[in-house]
Simulated scan of single mutants.
Amino acid sequence: MSYDGASLRRRLPGDVTPVELERALWILVGVSLVGDVVTTFVGLHLGLNESNPIARGAIYNHGLAGMLALKGVAIGIGLLCRPLLPAAYRAIVPAGLALPWTVAVFVNIYMIATVA
């Protein structure tokens, strides 16, 4: 068995390039970040509690600034790790940030709906 430098190239569905996919996912990161912050603080205002102990400490000790600092650290780590990946796989970074934050938004909305 030998390696001749050839690599398998996969096409994304449709005409989406890896760069376009990554750009769309970074937009989703921004939207989900804002959604998570807003729904978290609405829930807290309604008497709900933050379930993440790290976020809870940041929010209770530093308020909105603490929550934004946590989000900023997460994005910063993602941006630092991004160049370590081949260009075709860099979309995994924003996907890894957007997925849990998007889920958190829906969980927060559900929790708010049960209280309101």
Rank of each mutant, 00 (worst) to 15 (best):
G57P: 00
L68S: 07
A91Y: 14
P13T: 09
L48P: 00
P13M: 13
I109L: 08
V37Y: 06
V37A: 06
V105G: 09
G63K: 13
L28E: 13
L28P: 13
P53K: 01
K71L: 12
F41H: 14
L97S: 06
I27W: 12
Y60T: 13
V31S: 10
Y89R: 07
I75R: 14
L64D: 05
D36G: 10
P86V: 05
N52M: 07
N49M: 03
L48T: 02
L99V: 15
A55G: 03
M67F: 15
V16I: 15
V31A: 13
L64Y: 14
L80N: 11
L79K: 05
G78Q: 04
V29E: 02
C81I: 12
L68G: 00
L97G: 02
I75V: 15
T39Y: 06
T102R: 00
S2M: 13
G66D: 03
E22R: 12
V31E: 15
V42L: 15
G5S: 04
M1S: 12
P53H: 01
L25F: 07
Y110C: 06
V115S: 01
T39V: 10
V37Q: 01
V93F: 01
L46T: 11
W101Q: 04
V105C: 12
L25A: 04
G5D: 09
G63Y: 09
S51R: 07
V103T: 07
G35I: 03
I112P: 00
M111C: 12
T40Q: 08
L48C: 01
A116G: 10
M111V: 05
V42Q: 07
I112F: 00
V16E: 10
V105I: 14
S32Y: 10
L25G: 04
R23H: 01
V93Y: 10
L64S: 12
I59R: 05
M1W: 15
R90G: 05
V34S: 07
I92G: 06
A87W: 11
A6L: 04
P83C: 06
P83I: 08
V19P: 02
L84N: 01
A95G: 13
P18S: 01
G35P: 11
V42H: 12
L68F: 05
D4Y: 14
S32R: 03
A24Q: 10
K71V: 08
Y3I: 10
L80V: 06
A116S: 07
E20R: 06
L44K: 13
P18T: 10
P53Y: 02
T102E: 00
L48S: 04
W101D: 01
E22S: 13
K71P: 02
S51L: 10
G57C: 04
L48W: 03
Y60P: 00
P18I: 10
G14Y: 09
P53F: 05
A24K: 01
D15E: 11
V115Q: 14
N52C: 02
I54L: 14
R10Q: 02
I109M: 03
A58Y: 08
I112C: 04
L33F: 09
G57T: 08
I54N: 08
L21R: 00
I77G: 13
T17D: 00
A65L: 14
R11C: 10
N108M: 06
L85C: 01
P53S: 02
T102G: 13
G66N: 08
V107M: 15
T102Q: 00
G66V: 06
G35Q: 02
A55H: 00
P53L: 03
A91K: 08
A55W: 04
L33N: 09
R90P: 07
F41D: 03
Y110R: 10
S7E: 10
A113T: 11
M111R: 08
G30A: 06
T102I: 06
